[in-house]
Structures are given as C-alpha cells and as structure tokens.
C-alpha cells in the first residue's frame, strides 16, 4: 500500500471533507433556507429591540451625566464665609467629585443659552436665577447625602434647596440599571430561541442521516469529520441569520431612528451608526459560538 506525505494528503483531505459536507448539505437546502429565515427573524427582532434599548440607555446615560451636575441653591443673603464653609462640607462627602461656586450673573448667562429658560431670562427685570454651588456627583444616588447637609445650612435657599430631590436621583440611577439589564436579557433570550430553532434543525438532520452516520462510524470515519457537516450547517445558519439581522438593523438605523428623532426630539436617540456596528458584530459572534456549541452537543451513534 502506497502512502503520500502530509504536505500532499492534507490539502487533498480538506478537499474530500468539503466535498462530503457539500454532498450532505445540498439535499437539505430548502430546509436550511427555512431555518435560516426563522433564525434570522428571531435575531432581527432581538437586534431591533436591542438597538432601541441601547440608544435609549445611551440617552439616559447622557441625561444622568447632566443630572450629575447637582446644584445647591444659595439664599440671596448668604455670606461669603457661610458659602465657603458649606462648600468645604460638601467637598468632604463621599460620592462628590468636585464643588464650584456659580454666581447669579453666571446663572443668568447660562439660562440665556438654555432654550427652555431663554425667554424668561430675556424679559425679566430682576435676575431671578439664584447663585449656587455646582456639585459634580460620581452617581446621582449620592445626591441624598449632599441634600442632607445642604438643608441644615443657613446659606442654602430654604424654599428650593437643591436642583432635584434624592428620590428622583435614585429613580434615574435605577432606571439606567434596568435598561442595561434589559439589553442583556433580550440578547440572551433571543440567542436561546435561535439556538432552539437551530437545534431542532440539527437534530432532524441527524435523525434523517442516522443510517448514513452509523455506516460512516462503522467504517472508521473520524468523528470530527462526521460532525463537520453538522458544525458547518450550524455556523452557516448563524452567519445567514446574523446577516438578516444586520439588514434589519441597518433599515432600523437608517430609516426608523431618524424618523423617531425628528418627530420625538425629546427622546434624543442620537446617531445609531456606532451602536449598529457593535450590535452586528456581537450578534454574529455570539450566534456562531452558540449554534456551533449546540451542534457539538448533538449525539452521534457509537
């Protein structure tokens, strides 16, 4: 019996295995197509929901950053020494990044730039905007500690001591965590459903090809080679499904999100390009890994 060196047989063997995979796959093209569409539909729904959640979460994060500029309003009669003492007390609190003084004139100038306050700032005779201590918070939830110090201090405006209440800060912080949890939850659920659909296909393929697989096992074909068509089918399903999901994502990002941005500007969904690219890559990688793993879990005859 004549043998050939590894340099010759290895590429020829790859060719034989690819031809074998193609032979297995071509008879099931229609079933594969239907499953790819089903997997694609599940992934499309998931990425569309995730796109909105990611954009909404990004918008919330921006608002949280804005909200983290927490203001302690000063009474008009506050002395400079009282203000400076309050400033140092707040600076020492945990969760506070920095504290700076904003005068009444500075507050008026900022109000003139703000579209919601500009009208009031333009027509007012006396400056209604109070001086304040602007506190940068590491987390909006730290506002409760600042408020506790501020309300007891005589330099603070007794009627409206702070720009928002600690309860509102906690709610904002909690909602951000919930949105992030939802993004992860939807991704996991979608991958679970897509895996189930693919596993049903793979198991039906194994069942349909059981006599053939049994014969191949009996004649000593390496199990990895027998598994390759199943693995290739699972990965091709993941790639095709992800491609469909990416097309859906692209349509949502280029058509739906701009429409929402123009009709509902307060939502501030922003530009989805970066989020779309990230979601596409993550969907492709996670679906290939998950479906590939599922295909390796399908049992072969002994």
């Amino acid at each position: 019996m004549r043998f050939v060196p590894a340099s010759t047989w290895a590429p020829r063997y790859v060719g034989s295995v690819v031809a074998y995979c193609w032979r297995c796959w071509r008879h099931r093209m229609m079933i594969w197509l239907a499953t790819a569409v089903a997997v694609g539909a599940v992934l499309s729904l998931a990425v569309a929901a995730e796109l909105f959640l990611v954009l909404a979460s990004r918008s919330l994060a921006y608002q949280a950053r804005t909200a983290s500029e927490f203001q302690v309003f000063l009474s008009d009669g506050a002395q400079a020494s009282q203000v400076s003492q309050l400033e140092s007390q707040i600076t020492d609190l945990p969760g506070v990044k920095s504290v700076s003084y904003r005068s009444k004139q500075q507050a008026l100038a900022i109000a003139r730039q703000d579209p919601t306050l500009a009208r009031m700032a333009q027509y007012t005779q006396n400056n209604p905007f109070p001086a304040s201590l602007v506190v940068q918070l590491a987390d909006p939830a730290a506002a409760s500690r600042v408020t506790a110090v501020a309300v007891k201090d005589p330099a603070t405006d007794p009627q409206i001591p702070t720009s928002y209440t600690p309860g509102q800060g906690d709610k904002l912080s909690g909602f951000l965590s919930l949105a992030r949890g939802l993004v992860v939850g939807i991704a996991v659920a979608a991958l679970g459903v897509a895996s189930l659909v693919a596993v049903v296909l793979l198991r039906s393929e194994i069942r349909a090809r059981r006599p053939e697989l049994r014969i191949l096992v009996l004649v000593g074909t390496p199990r990895l080679v027998i598994r390759l068509p199943v693995l290739a089918e699972a990965c091709s399903l993941a790639v095709a499904g992800s491609l469909l999901a990416t097309l859906t994502l692209s349509a949502m990002g280029t058509r739906v999100v701009p429409v929402i941005n123009s009709y509902l500007p307060f939502l501030q969904l922003g530009n989805p390009t970066n989020s779309m690219a990230l979601l596409s890559v993550l969907t492709l990688a996670s679906s290939v890994l998950t479906l590939g793993f599922c295909s390796l879990m399908v049992r072969l005859p002994r």
Binding site: M1, R2, F3, A6, W9, V17, Y20, L216, T221, P222
Partner: peptide, 17 residues
Amino acid sequence: LLPLQLAHPRIHDPQAY
C-alpha cells in the same frame, strides 16, 4: 471510495484502490 477518502487520507490514489 468515501471511507477511503475520509478514514484513510494518507492512501495514495484512493480511487485506484
């Protein structure tokens, strides 16, 4: 031929065998 190709890749000219 198929078992020769898949299980005995080092055989020279499996079709002839």
